[in-house]
Write a protein that binds this DNA or RNA. Structure first.
Lengths: 141, 141
DNA sequence: ATAAACCTGAGTAAAATAGTCAAGTATCAT
DNA sequence: ATGATACTTGACTATTTTACTCAGGTTTAT
């Protein structure tokens, strides 16, 4: 059970963006340097974030990205969604009518995985970007 | 963020074992047939479960496996541990003295991943095999 | 004009996953 | 005794996923 880099990077980059987001856009180059994430990879990630309208891009020199909503309104779930970081606990999900594995009953552990998924999703639904930034400025080492 | 088959299979197989565990051991062949898991793969998994003393093996004809503790005392965490299904949210964990990425500060999102890990682990610590079997016999389709 | 920065898609090496395969050994029913 | 059942172990491998890199753009402030 592990989180992938893409998901982590997306959150890290957006947290960075939220911190340095004033009037001016923040360039991926700056984020890349501050967070130690490859520029090329960041571009892939931000392309997805832009398509899901989490950030806005500003082209040209002095360009970069700005948040498209208030940090408070951006939940971690939105971010993970955007970069296809899904919470997958089990495969037997789609066959709604039948049970799992083509059998008539649900697999023994089906309800468990559903519960777990909800548990994790609730966590991500509650946390916003703002929480992250706030939390961090308070507990700074 | 996904659970691997090994972890899922381990839980499924043990749930099956807990259900059919009377006096007689349950053979992997039966579990394989009932749960649709490859016999060879099950053998790998049970080898690990045995080493961690979650199950006991009985050799020979009419042999199989039995639980080594009561179903109530086997928590999902024990199972995942045994098959090396770890909850990993972040890489920057070991460098306790320094921050992450070799920098002096913790990465912006460090506390978040810690929180998430605890959140998930708490869930697994509370659930026992017994819960699974009980839950299932009640909510059967 | 030109350099900074965004934008896009393809390609790819390494790691993890999800198994299979082969060759045993122990035990019980008969 | 012996054959069948079932556990035991370790090596091997195909597939998939991940985590990028690379190569070429386009846009726009100065």
């Amino acid at each position: 059970m592990k989180l992938t880099s893409k998901g982590r990077y997306a959150v890290m980059a957006l947290a960075d963006l939220a911190r340095f987001d004033n009037i001016n856009p923040v360039s991926l180059r700056d984020i890349s340097l501050r967070q130690g994430i490859s520029l090329d990879y960041l571009e892939q990630i931000f392309s997805k974030l832009r398509k899901k309208e989490i950030v806005q891009s500003v082209r040209g020199i002095q360009g970069g990205y700005i948040l498209n909503k208030k940090a408070k309104e951006i939940k971690l779930n939105n971010i993970f969604d955007a970069v296809d970081e899904k919470v997958k606990t089990v495969k037997c999900k789609k066959e709604s009518k039948k049970g799992c594995n083509g059998k008539l009953t649900k697999c023994l552990t089906h309800n468990l995985w559903d519960e777990l998924e909800n548990h994790i999703n609730n966590f991500f639904n509650e946390k916003s970007l703002e929480d992250l930034v706030k939390d961090n400025s308070e507990k700074r080492i």
